[in-house]
Amino acid sequence: MAHALTIHNLKAQIQDKPILNGINLEINSGEIHALMGPNGSGKSTLANVLMGSPEYTVTGGQITLDVQNLLEMQIHERAQAGIFLAFQYPVEIPGVTVGKFLKRALETKISGMNVSDYLKDLRTTMDFLEMDQDFINRYVNDGFSGGEKKRMEILQMLMLKPRFAILDETDSGLDIDALKIVARGVNRARGSGFGALIITHYQRLLDHIRPDFVHIMYNGKIITSGGEELVRQLEEKGYDWIKKEYNLIEEEAHEYSTN
């Protein structure tokens, strides 16, 4: 079944500082959207606001998943409705094992889950992501390397089978081999029942996950959208080209680029 995640004129701030200044974006099932933009443009804020992070205050606009108003839903309700966030900095949770945590997370979506099927699925998915099975009994992200943490996010995404996944700079800090594995995971999820918003700085992840749509974000707004060609243009000409192209005020650019 096809679903739609729709963001309309979304405005949000942290403390008193506005970060999102009217975001419009529609992601349908089956589509991969890439969101690019310089540091401080508000990409991670958008990811966190979509998931319902209490750090941010939404000051205007709507987010809907089909007919559901996401902004009225709690974090776990959004997750249960099919939203998934792969965190830029996954937090370490000593004392909670990966195996038990994922089992509970799945049980919130599937009633009467079969434990042996779950373990089989988990082991197969770990093999696919070239992860050691020992991770099942390790504490969530505790003592993991940067690459292992990112793989753990992708593992969770594949296990939880969300309708829409937001990947917040999952490629940052990854070597090329880890990057390929992350891409493999996303490409596996790709299909008619899955949509994604991939937030990244660089072209390289998008060489492995080819997006259907590309959006450039600047100063809390999406300033232009297009297809894959936009990634190449950006890579060749840099963000300065975007600034000139769209007459963005240099002073603002400076302010945000130092954040």
Binding site: M51, Q74, I75, H76, A79, I93, F101, T108, Q156, L160
Partner: peptide
Amino acid sequence: LFYLMSRGLSE
């Protein structure tokens, strides 16, 4: 807390 809730667990 945010992390656990983002995976579907209640507060």
